[in-house]
Design a protein around this nucleic acid. Structure first.
Lengths: 117, 117
DNA sequence: CTTGACTCTCACGTCAACGTGAAGGTTTAG
DNA sequence: CTAAACCTTCACGTTGACGTGAGAGTCAAG
């Protein structure tokens, strides 16, 4: 699978995929021509990257987490133990972010409540 | 109340407060010396700004929303009707963001589940 | 009346996740 | 065999919410 195929299937751009590789998140094989070659597994990895990015993790944190995410999603990983503290901290950060989003949504709801429609 | 007092009470910096003013979010009075003078109400406004910023709204959107938020929080605002669509869109965006955060947290939870402690 | 802690207004720097050409090689359909 | 449509590697540009001095005025205490 070539870069723009994967980009299309993941709903992103070739540039983003090259950037992920530059940050150590993807490691595609290379053809003799230099073209990047992605396998099916790469699509799931990219989806994980997008999810974690949208959760506010940066590429550095994701680079540490990704190797701990098993290929087969139904099987739990032998979690990298040195990351547990960091992961718990990120989890707490996400929970706080969700609470803040909820509070912000409540503010908007107070305004939308008097909707004349 | 001077700028660094408000900054301390709001857990932010003078620079951020000047930036908010530059973006039209705050309108402090000025002393003859040119010093900014903030009233108690300003603290609540700053908290609203922080909340909405953390929810992913930019200063432009917040500048439109703020005048619709009543001083007395217990009273609903006569909502600015032209903003309803934008507010609803932001609300939807926040809901999606919360869902993505939840999904990302689930990913982390799968990894944390095998915590040996 | 001076010193230290504020304050003011420019104005450039930062950081992360890409966007956007530039200049050139590769693949594939006709 | 050629032209379109890919791909490659630099490398600089963008965006938003500030950080960080620079240079200068202001205020409160001793």
């Amino acid at each position: 699978m070539r870069i723009s195929d994967l980009a299309r299937r993941a709903g992103t751009t070739p540039r983003a995929l090259r950037y992920y590789e530059e940050q150590g998140l993807l490691h595609p094989a290379r053809l003799a021509s230099g073209y990047r070659q992605y396998d099916e597994q790469a699509l799931r990895v990219v989806r994980h990257i997008q999810l974690l990015l949208s959760a506010g993790l940066n590429t550095t944190a994701i680079a540490e987490i990704l190797p701990c995410i098993p290929d087969d999603v139904t099987v739990l990983a032998p979690t990298c133990p040195e990351l547990l503290d960091g992961l718990a901290a990120e989890r707490a950060r996400i929970t706080r972010a969700m609470q803040q989003l909820g509070a912000a949504r409540d503010v908007l709801d107070r305004l939308l409540q008097s909707d004349p429609r």
